[in-house]
Structures are given as C-alpha cells and as structure tokens.
Design a protein around this nucleic acid. Sequence first.
DNA 1: GAGTTTTGCATGCACATGCATCTAATGTCT
DNA 2: AGACATTAGATGCATGTGCATGCAAAACTC
Lengths: 155, 155
Amino acid sequence: MRMHDNVASMTETKVSAGSGETGTDRESTADVREWREILARHADLSCALDRELQAGHALGMSEYEVLERLAELPEQSAKVSAIAKSVHLSQSALSRVIGRLETAGLVERVMCTQDRRAVIVQLTESGLLLQTEAQPTQRRVLAERLHAPLLKSCE
Amino acid sequence: MRMHDNVASMTETKVSAGSGETGTDRESTADVREWREILARHADLSCALDRELQAGHALGMSEYEVLERLAELPEQSAKVSAIAKSVHLSQSALSRVIGRLETAGLVERVMCTQDRRAVIVQLTESGLLLQTEAQPTQRRVLAERLHAPLLKSCE
DNA sequence: GAGTTTTGCATGCACATGCATCTAATGTCT
DNA sequence: AGACATTAGATGCATGTGCATGCAAAACTC
C-alpha cells in the first residue's frame, strides 16, 4: 500500500448548526472524530509497516500478514478459505498474494486430498525463516507508532 | 477519547506504565491485538461506507472525504496543498480525486492569484448539496458499525 | 537581474485490489 | 445415475493508489 507521510493539519470542525435536534448530532460528531482517528492511525501504521517490511525483508503488508497467520498455526499450513477468514482481503486478492509468496518460495500450494477443489498453503523453511526475521520489525514499528501522538486529524 | 476504549468485547490493551521496558513479548503481542483490531474495524467501516456512499450518492469514500472537508470550511474552498494535509491520500491521488469531483461538477478548480502555482478547490452548489445529502448516510453507517462487534463480513 | 533551488500540482507508469466470471469438484434432489 | 446447485480457487478486467517525473511559478542566492 505504502501511503505518503504527511504532517500538520487543517481541521476546523464546524459541522453542526445546532437546531432543536436530539443528542444524535453530538454523538455522530463524536463518531466522526473516532472514525478519523482510526483512519489516521491506520494510514500511519500501514505506511510505516509497509515501508519497513519492504525495505528490510522485501515483503508487503499483505504478504507478511499471510506468513504470520501460517506461522502461528502448529502445522504451519491452512486452506486458502481458512486464511481468507482471518485476513482482510478479497478471495481474489488473497489468491494473488499466495501466488507471489509461492513464486518467492515462501509457501507451497498443495492439493487437498479430502476436497480436491481446495488448496492447502504450506509454509516453507525459508518462509518460516523470513517471517521469524520480519516479526521483530513489525513489533518494533507497532511499539513505536501505535500509541504515538497523531500529527493529523487533531486540530 | 482513545479509540480502543470502546471496541466491543475485545481484549483490553492497556500498556503498562511502570517499567521502562520496550519491545517485550507481552507488550508486543498486546500491540498486535490492538493493531489487528484497527485493521478489522477499518476494513469493515471502509467497505460499508464505500458501499453505501456509492449506492446512495455515487460517491467513493475519498471523494466524500474531500467534499466533507470543504463543506466544513466557512469559505468552502481550500488549496490542494491544504486539503492534502487533512486527508490520507498522496498528493497525486488527491489530484485525481479532485479531477473526478470536478468532472462531476461538484467542485471547481480556481487559479490562486497570490500564488499562481497553487490551485484553489471550490465547492459548487451541487457539491454542497450532495455532501449535505450524503452526510446522514455516513453518520448512520458510523453509528451502526463503529462500536458493533466485528463480524468480518465485508462484501 | 540571472541562475539555482524549492514548491505546487498534474501525469506516465506500475501494481495491488475488488468484481465478475470461469473451471473443476462436491453436494443435493429426485 | 443424471441434473442442477453450491463451493473452492484462479483469472480477465477496470479502477484507485503511490512513486517518479515533468512543468510552471515562486523563492532564494549571488
């Protein structure tokens, strides 16, 4: 994804004109504030994570996410449909992420013998190694920025 | 208000304040939980907002965001560089969003006479009208899903 | 004032993503 | 068994995004 890095802000919330409405106005503006905070935090962290993972381990965020999910499992493998449930990607996007990981030799696609439509994604040695190497990078970025003050979206 | 205060029945992610340790396993796994929570909430809301804004008002999330920022300003116009600071888009992406809004007749690009490099984006009548119509949709989606338990059903 | 650097925005390009669709395998119904 | 429906995953296509770059205008240096 790799978003830009920006600073400063121009927030100038006026919004409500204050007629005889119920309390919904105040509540929804609180919602908006919260939503903007999620947006800002997500943008900041996605950008930072993607940049550091790319620079340090040639991994995108989606790729790392899939590797991490596989590494967390005792058998270090899962059906595509199972991975899809724990990652926020469409089925097609996930299929291509797995394709990239396979090309890079980090996972292998194995036909499932019980259900021959399904594909089991198996973490390889180098895939596990790379995830193990990349994990501290991810943890460090999270520790650095997850609770850091946001420079945007706060007037 | 901190964003994770109200996040449904999820794990409580309080960071210990006592020790000066950084990057310990316990803390980083708490970070991971919080990060995944942000990812899930962001995915759910982005998808829902985009779908409803698209269906109801033919607006994408980025387009709505820009309209909203402009509508919040007393003069309902701003330089591109100013908008860029309050929206989580790269400068190039923002330029194209503004292009789409202009094509749709929702904003106009006006040359800035003080700085002839700059472009002032001015909300039009129909732009303001559309934003006014779309705002309740956004507020409703936020109210419905911002604090709802995460179901990961985004399609 | 001429030359250089920086700033503001647009654009070519590469690429990741979602949607619709396709193929194959499985499940279901009669 | 045969016919239809459903599910798992891959792929063509359109689109939105970021990066690198281009261009013009302002700012800076001498």
